[in-house]
Structures are given as C-alpha cells and as structure tokens.
C-alpha cells in the first residue's frame, strides 16, 4: 500500500493554537481535518507536509446555525451534516443537491466544508455552491480575522485567500427573501469528481429575478463565477429562452481543458445544459413549484 512520508503531528486544542503553530512551522505545515483530499495526496507523495496540525478536536468550528440575517457554517462541519441540515435545505436546497453527489456517504462522514473549500480543486462542488449563494468566507490569521467574498476567496488553481498562516473559520450565507437554488452535476460514475457541475441561486421579487448567482465546477482552472450571466438575468422575468441564453454564456465563459472526463466541446456543452437546468430548478424552488 502507498504510505505517506514522515511528518510531525500536533493535535490542535484551539484556533489560536493552530494559528500560532502555523506561524511557527511556516510553509511546511498543513492543517488536516477530514483529510480526504490531503491523505491520498500524501500517500501518492504528491504532498509531503513536514508538520501536520489536526483540527478535528475543534468542535467549536462545527455548526450550522442562523445568526441574524445569515446562516453561519463552521469550517469543520462535515459533508454529512450539510446533507442532513434542514435549515440549509429550507433556505439553500442546493447544498443538499450537491451533498448527495459529493464523493460517497462514507467519505462524507469525514470530509468538511473547510477542507473542500481550501483544497479549491476546480472540480469541487461546494466552491461553486458557495459562490452561487454569494457566501462570505471568514479567515483568521496572525493579524486577526477578515471576511472575503467567494470571488476574492478563489485566487487560482488550488489557491485561495487562505494564506500559509491562516485558517478558514466559517462560511456565512446571506439570507434574503425570494431565494431559490439548485446544483446540477454530471459525473462519470457515482462518487467521481464532476465532468461539469453548475450551481445556481436566484432571488425573486415580484415575478422577476432580482438577483442571481451562478458558478461552475470542473470547467476551468478554478471555480468559474458567471458574472456575465448573472447580469443578464438581473431584473428579468424567468423564461426558458432566458435560461438558454444564460447557458450559452456559461458555455462561452468557461475555460475547460480536455482530460479523461471529456473533451473541451463536451464540457462547454455541459456547462450550458447544467446552467440552464440549475436555473430552472432554482426559480421553480423560489416560486415554491418544487422542493
């Protein structure tokens, strides 16, 4: 069996302790939570951290709760909890859509939202989900806490605004009236990464789309924020033609590369189809026409 290279290990007892350890240990240190992205990389020796900080005991980072006009999700919240959360299902059903198709149920017992977002694999679903619902990421570092939008969060391939000495603490989802959302994914097999996936959220007002959020997985070097399509939808009544047009923008504005999952033209096609489907379901949910 493939086995990781040697490293030192510390079990964190507080967020401050993690920040301090990261500072002390520098770039060789990595935080581990569920470990389902990091451990396989370590076994394949594609990742060789010298110092591993285990944050699984920081239960204070595990929660999904309503706080004023927001839902706050702790970074250590596991996929299974996101899947089962009635609060999320009520306000942002796209989380449940996504969580039903992220990895498999056993992996979902361990993997966390923080780990998924910080791994920032372009094919990862929750990055698109959080982008679509206009989430904000709360990051703590040696200089204190800061809050960034998902656009700011995604810096590049496998790179986020969470720097070497930082820890993602929380994700905050703004609550607004008239919301509907959906996540659509095509994969080669259950449990596989997406060939392409689309997350969409809409906020309806008086029969019109007051605002929209759309993001794509697996069709670019990082999560694709479809701001041009969001602009197109703003203020318009939802129609099939409009969704098709948004899909066309998705096909154009994504930048997939060919790999074992498919060629570029197919991925562009999927980006369009899935954007259309996600928008249709998001609107229909906002209008309470489907669950």
């Amino acid at each position: 069996m493939q086995t990781p290279a040697s490293f030192e290990y510390e079990r964190a007892t507080s967020v401050d302790g993690v920040i301090a350890a990261l500072k002390k240990r520098g770039s060789g240190a990595r935080v581990i939570a569920g470990g389902h992205s990091l451990m396989p990389m370590m076994k394949l020796r594609l990742a060789k951290p010298e110092y591993l900080i285990d944050i699984n005991d920081l239960t204070e980072l595990s929660y999904i709760r309503e706080e004023g006009e927001e839902i706050a999700i702790g970074a250590l919240t596991r996929h299974v909890e996101l899947l089962n959360s009635e609060l999320l299902a009520e306000h942002f059903p796209l989380f449940r859509d996504a969580e039903q198709v992220i990895a498999d149920p056993v992996v979902r017992n361990r993997g966390t939202i923080g780990g998924s977002l910080c791994q920032a694999d372009a094919a990862e679903d929750l990055s698109a989900v959080c982008s679509a619902v206009k989430a904000k990421a709360v990051i703590r570092g040696a200089d204190g806490e800061r809050t960034v939008s998902m656009e700011e969060f995604h810096v590049g391939p496998y790179t986020t605004a969470v720097g070497a000495g930082d820890l993602l603490i929380e994700v905050r989802l703004p609550l607004r009236a008239g919301a509907g959302s959906a996540h659509e994914k095509v994969e080669r097999r259950a449990g596989d990464w997406a060939i392409a996936a689309a997350s969409a959220a809409v906020w309806m007002d008086g029969g019109k789309i007051a605002e929209a959020g759309i993001a794509l997985s697996a069709v670019g070097l990082t999560t694709i924020h479809l701001s041009r399509a969001e602009q197109l939808l703003k203020g318009k009544a939802p129609t099939d033609e409009l969704f098709v047009e948004a899909g066309e923008i998705a096909s154009t504005d994504c930048s997939p590369s060919a790999d074992g999952r498919g060629p570029v033209d197919y991925k562009r096609h999927l980006a369009g189809v899935l954007t259309g489907r996600a928008l249709r379901r998001a609107v229909s949910r906002a209008l309470h026409q489907e669950a």
């Binding site: 069996m1 493939q2 581990i32 470990g35 451990m39 076994k43 361990r110």
Partner: peptide
C-alpha cells in the same frame, strides 16, 4: 490507495469511515 474502494471501512464513533485515510494518531 485513494479512498475509493471501501475495503477498509470501520466504524468511528458509530459512523463508517475509511481507515486508510485516517491516521492512527487522529483516532485517539
């Protein structure tokens, strides 16, 4: 080696997990 096959599943606090993707030290 990649957490895909499930041959290593055990229960951790009653929940199934893949024991090839968890360190022994994390299980204390």
């Amino acid at each position: 080696d990649t957490s895909n096959c499930g041959a290593c599943v055990v229960l951790m606090d009653g929940k199934p997990v893949k024991s090839c993707t968890i360190l022994a030290v994390m299980s204390e």
